[in-house]
Amino acid sequence: MTTPPRLFDAEQIARNRARRSGPDNFVRDLVLEDLADRLSTYKRDFARAVLIGPDAGTLPQTLVTANGPVSAVRIEAFAGEEYPALPEGEQDLIVSLLHLQVVNDVPGHLARLRRALKPDGLLLAAFLGGETLTELREAFLAADLAVSGGASARIAPMAQVRDAGALLQRAGFALPVADVETHRVRYGTPFALMAELKALGASNPLADRPRRFATRSLLAAAAEAYASRDSDPDGRVRATLEIIWLAGWVPHESQQKPLRPGSATVSMKDVLGGSTP
């Protein structure tokens, strides 16, 4: 088996998080609100549940489904290891929040989570993806080309929702579902966005990142490019935040199976009430 490429630097991620101003995180709060809405639709009892996420002590100890409260074991997503330690025994539910976007081997980690679930167990995962920070990425690309004549890795690559369901299937999950929640956040200036990313511990996590600090001329060029491309009439700038949600079940004989080709008992002609082409 080939070793997955090392895109993300776990030690740098730890340093970024250590420099944070505090545990407040509006992105995590958005995801937790969405998680509550999604879990409320499941008519299922989950006797053993795990909740993986950043700042585990701030995560809820009790989740709520349509059947009532679920006690969850909270696990820190960024405890110094790429893969968080999981409790012994098979789980009924694993929820992973804002972690997969900095995992080097996503299919391998998803397969690991599947092995920790019992048959017919559920995985829910939310991570940053899609067009998240695409405005900042394009601004730095333009600034790098203008200042130094080349591009540097400054914004982490993001998975697209169209690929997310395939990741679940590759990891062995059944009935995979992937969708995306898109948010537009506005800031007074591009520098305000950069400052918030630093405060959230979300500075550049790439292993192949530039080793020199960005110069004033580069930052100024990036801010100018950002404002020229993505500012509103009131002068504030837009930033895109896309959160991809995954849901998959460990295969079990009780789950719904697709019909075999040719096994339909009702013709299209009967459904449409006329002849079919």
Rank of each mutant, 00 (worst) to 15 (best):
T2V: 13
T2C: 00
P4D: 06
L7A: 13
A10E: 04
A14K: 08
N16D: 04
A18Y: 05
A18L: 10
P23W: 07
R28A: 10
L32P: 07
L32I: 11
E33N: 14
Y42G: 06
R48H: 08
V50I: 15
P54A: 13
L59A: 11
L63P: 07
L63E: 08
V64R: 13
N67K: 15
G68A: 11
S71Q: 14
A72N: 09
A72F: 03
V73P: 08
V73C: 14
R74D: 06
E81D: 15
E82F: 02
P84L: 05
E88H: 13
E90M: 11
Q101Y: 00
Q101L: 06
V103F: 07
V103W: 06
P107V: 02
G108E: 08
H109V: 00
A116K: 14
D120M: 00
L122Q: 09
L122K: 14
G130R: 04
E131T: 14
L133F: 06
E135D: 08
A142I: 14
D144L: 00
L145Y: 10
S148E: 15
G149Y: 05
G149H: 03
G149P: 01
G149C: 02
G150T: 12
A151F: 08
S152A: 11
I155A: 05
G165Y: 00
A166Y: 10
L167Y: 03
L168Q: 03
Q169Y: 00
G172P: 02
P176Q: 02
P176V: 00
V180T: 09
H183C: 10
H183P: 05
V185Q: 13
R186H: 15
G188C: 01
T189K: 15
A192K: 12
L193M: 06
E196C: 03
K198A: 15
K198D: 07
L200T: 02
G201K: 03
P205R: 06
A207N: 12
P210R: 11
R211T: 10
R212L: 10
F213L: 15
T215A: 06
A220T: 05
A223M: 14
E224I: 03
E224F: 10
A227E: 15
D230N: 09
P233A: 05
G235Q: 12
R238H: 11
R238Y: 13
E242Y: 03
I244M: 06
A247S: 12
G248R: 00
S254L: 03
P261E: 08
S263R: 12
T265S: 15
G273W: 09
G274S: 00
G274A: 01
